[in-house]
Structure formats: structure tokens, C-alpha cells
Write a protein that binds this DNA or RNA. Structure first.
Lengths: 260, 260
DNA sequence: CTAGTATATCTAATATACAAGTTAAAGAAT
DNA sequence: ATTCTTTAACTTGTATATTAGATATACTAG
């Protein structure tokens, strides 16, 4: 090992004074200059959420690397991140697999979203400016346009944008980031549900109720509207799980019992 | 580059059938077999939360690596993870620094904790068994013991254990994981506050109120008790920020404005 | 002395090489 | 045929080497 590492550079070039940030000036991270690892992460995330890589599918770091024409390093970084987010499971020295959806995580995610987004909506009702309300209405209009075309993919993106905007207006963008994390498993689940007739219209209607409450500066109504909006999913979990039994995992987690 | 990578291994050994998990058997991750990267993460996290590495401090991957006697790879993995958690900021090709505490994140964290833990307490009041209530009381007793000794460090650990146990009893362990994430910045902040007389006793009192409500199977009371417990912090933010101005960063995030 | 430029040296990002462990398939023994 | 053993190929974890960008100092011109 490098046990006896002597560092003769003790008296090297004067280093930046401690507690000094990169530089006093602000640094604007350029959006286009994405790191390779970031790209690999997005690619993998996409393939997982679209179920191109279904739960249980094997993932090979070397294969992904050569497919993408990069080395294993950025691929590995992406895999590590996905593992922490619960989307892949890596077994040391053995293999990496797309994680099954833990059924217990689904109702939990719904509960977390309700709690968090209820707050963002209340805050939005408190802080929204007239222009922000118009921005929200603009997103609603976008919803309608995409629903008419029938582009469920873009509609979903627009849906996300709505929720993010509510959080931003409520000055609680951090809460949206938490929701995003929890949403990962929910989104995979949603892919397995059949498109119901009128579902898009229902979403638009519920979103509109939220905006109305925000415009009326009525936090209680806004929170209630969000709660109503986010309570839909729970019911048909069982039927979907029954249809794809090996995409899910029942996690009654023995450690939980030990802890108590 | 490896542009023309030919893979002649197309007809190689038969791979595991798709959608097959690591193995049918359950695999119990051995607690002791921590990966080097994990160790490095814990070490760095500790040095950051204890303010041994204060906000703004420079971090050098090679230095950390040689100090710990490992290569840069596991160190880098730890740094990446901390970056995603908002505890360090890495400027590509330039340097890595302990992140300043974003002041806006503090009230946000309090709000998120309130929303989330209110739910866990309500759920706990709904599901708690008699034995679980006794476990909660045991933790309360531990609180008292540690408060008498005056060991604030262990008291904090015990405090965490309490909140985690409430979430577990409420069958919402995922919500506690979210809270943990949000707590990272709060904990750094707490390190900067002076120990107030009677603070520990107040915490015990408030925790006791939560347990009482859970035992009484009164979700509303439990939720209210948690809300009350978690509303304390907010006030003295300004004074602490004034005392350590360069440990914080005011993030009115210009991108937020563009998004609207 | 000041402003601008060059350059040496730091950094993190990526690539490659090696080590340690797992697993599946082939082969041997029953 | 069946079960055990062996073994080779494949896995991730870690170490090292290379690349490219950023920055502080030294230097040059005015």
C-alpha cells in the first residue's frame, strides 16, 4: 500500500486561503457542458423508467460502456447514483440488476407527495403574483393542447412542469426535489397501468382547481385540491401487481422487526 | 477513441435468463463488509457535519486519498455522493469545496420535516402496538439518561433514533429516509448554535407528548405534537447567520426567475 | 508601479489496468 | 442419469495513468 507516502510538497505553491470558495465571482454552470457521467445517468434512467430495461434485467457496466463508446468510469458513476436512488441493485462482484419496485414504496410515495405538495400549494397560494398565476394558466393550456393531440409522453412532462412551478411559486423548490426522488418508483409503476379514458381530462380539471385556489389566495383550498389530486393512484395497485408479479418485490424487511 | 470496438464475444457463454434477479435466494448484506467508498463517505460526512471541514474549505481528492491510504477512486465516489446531497460543491477541473449552507434551505427543511414527520406520527398513532409504545418510552428514558450525563452528542443520536422509530412504527420508513436527507443541512446549522439551557429537557417533554398521543391512538394530537416540536428552530436563523456570514450563501437562484 | 500575458502546476474527468470474488457450464465420479 | 468438483469466463471493486481545463504566480511591456 501507499503507507509511507511522504508528501514533500509541503512548502509548495501558496494555496488559496482556507474557507475561500472557488472564486468570489458567481460561476454559471453552462447547461450544455454536461459531463459524460451525467449523460450516462440520463440514458440509463430513461431506459429504466420506460421499462426498456424492466425490473430484474441484468446490467453490465462494460457492455454499457462499449455501447456508449465511453470507458467504464462514467458508466459506473451513473450506476452508483441509480443504486442510491433505488432503481438498480448492485451485487458486488456478481452483477447489477434493475431493481424491482418495492410495493410498500408506492403508498409511501403517494403519502409523501401529498404531504409535501400540499405544503407547496399552500405556500403558492400565499405568495403567487399575478404573473405567476398566468404562468400556471399557461401550463394548463399546454395540458389541453397535448391532451388533444393525445401525446401522453409530453403530457406527462407538462404535468411535471406544473407541479414544479407550483413549488417554485411557493418558494419551496427543495420540496419539489424531494418529490422528484420519490416519484421515480411511482413513474415506473404508472408505465404499467393502462391508459384510462378521460384520465388526462381529469388531471387538467384537478390542476385547474389548484390554480383557482392559488389565484383566490386560499391556502386551505389549494392544499385540499392537491390532496384530492394526488389520492387517485392507490386503488389499482393490487391488480397491476397481479399482472406483473415479478416486477415487484414484497419488502416486509426483517430488519424493521429487529429494530423494535 | 474506442470508436471501432468490435465485440467478437457475441456467442459467448450463455447468460442468465433475462429478468432473473441475482439469485432466487435472499442475500443478506453483511454489515461488516463495507466497501472502501462507503468508509470514505462516512469519514468525509463526519468531518463536514462536525465542522472540522467548515463551509468553504477546499477538498483535494488526491490528498484525501493518500491520507486514507486508498486510491482516488473510492474517495471520488464519496465526493460525488456528497455533492449530490448538497454538502460539497465540485467545480470541474478546478476544485472541490465544502458547500456553504444555503439559507433558503433551512426554513424549507423545517417545513419538509414538519410535513413528513406529521404524517409518520399520525400513522404511528394509527398502527402502534403496545410493545412499540414501550419501545418509544424506552427511547425517552434513554433521552433522560443522556441529558443527565450531559452528553449532547449521544443525545442527538438518541433523538434521531426516536424520530426514526416513530416512522418505523407508522410503517413509513421511506419518509424517514427523506427527512434524513433534508436534515443534513439542518444538522450543520445546529452545530453553530450555542447550547441553550433547558433545551434538552424541552425536547424530552415534546417527545413525551408525541408518545402520549400515539399511545392514546389520537392521530390529530400526534401530528400536532410533532408540528409543535419541529417549529422551534426557525427564529434565531438570522443571528447565527450574522455570526458566521461566510458559512452561508444567499441563493435567490437566478434560474428560478427565468423558469417563470 | 501597473496591466497584460505566459507558463507551470494544480485540479477533476476519463481511460485503462489489475485484483478479488461469483457463477455457470463442462467434466469426473458415482 | 445424477451429483459433485473443477475451471474458465464474467462480474464489480480498486488502483494507476492519461487528458484537458482552470488558476495563481512569474514575467514582460508600458
Amino acid at each position: 500500500m501507499t503507507e509511507t507516502v511522504q508528501r514533500p510538497k509541503e512548502a509548495r505553491r501558496k494555496k488559496r486561503a482556507p474557507n475561500t470558495p472557488p472564486t468570489a465571482q458567481v460561476r454559471f454552470p453552462v447547461g450544455g457542458a454536461k459531463t459524460l457521467a451525467e449523460v450516462q445517468y440520463q440514458r440509463l434512467l430513461d431506459r429504466i423508467t420506460t421499462m426498456e430495461l424492466p425490473p430484474g434485467a441484468a446490467i453490465s457496466e462494460p457492455d454499457l460502456a462499449s455501447e456508449a463508446g465511453v470507458s467504464r468510469t462514467p458508466v459506473r458513476e451513473a450506476v452508483q447514483r441509480l443504486a442510491r436512488e433505488g432503481l438498480v441493485e448492485v451485487v458486488p462482484k456478481s452483477g447489477t440488476f434493475v431493481a424491482r419496485i418495492p410495493v410498500s414504496a408506492l403508498p409511501e410515495a403517494v403519502i409523501a407527495r401529498r404531504a409535501l405538495e400540499c405544503m407547496t400549494a399552500r405556500a403558492a397560494a400565499q405568495f403567487a403574483t399575478r404573473s405567476q398565476v398566468l404562468s400556471l394558466r399557461a401550463v394548463l393550456e399546454e395540458h389541453s393542447e397535448l391532451a388533444e393531440i393525445g401525446d401522453r409522453e409530453k403530457f406527462h412532462k407538462s404535468d411535471e412542469k406544473f407541479h414544479e412551478l407550483v413549488a417554485t411559486v411557493g418558494r419551496l423548490p427543495g420540496l419539489w426535489r424531494l418529490v422528484q426522488q420519490v416519484k421515480l418508483q411511482l413513474d415506473r409503476f404508472r408505465r404499467l397501468t393502462l391508459p384510462e379514458a378521460g384520465r388526462l381530462q381529469l388531471i387538467i380539471k384537478e390542476h385547474t382547481a389548484v390554480v383557482d385556489a392559488i389565484q383566490a389566495r386560499d391556502p386551505d383550498a389549494a392544499g385540499a385540491a392537491v390532496e384530492k389530486h394526488l389520492s387517485g393512484l392507490q386503488l389499482h395497485i393490487e391488480t397491476v401487481v397481479a399482472a406483473h408479479p415479478d416486477y415487484f418485490i414484497y419488502d416486509a424487511d426483517p430488519t424493521d422487526l429487529l429494530k423494535i
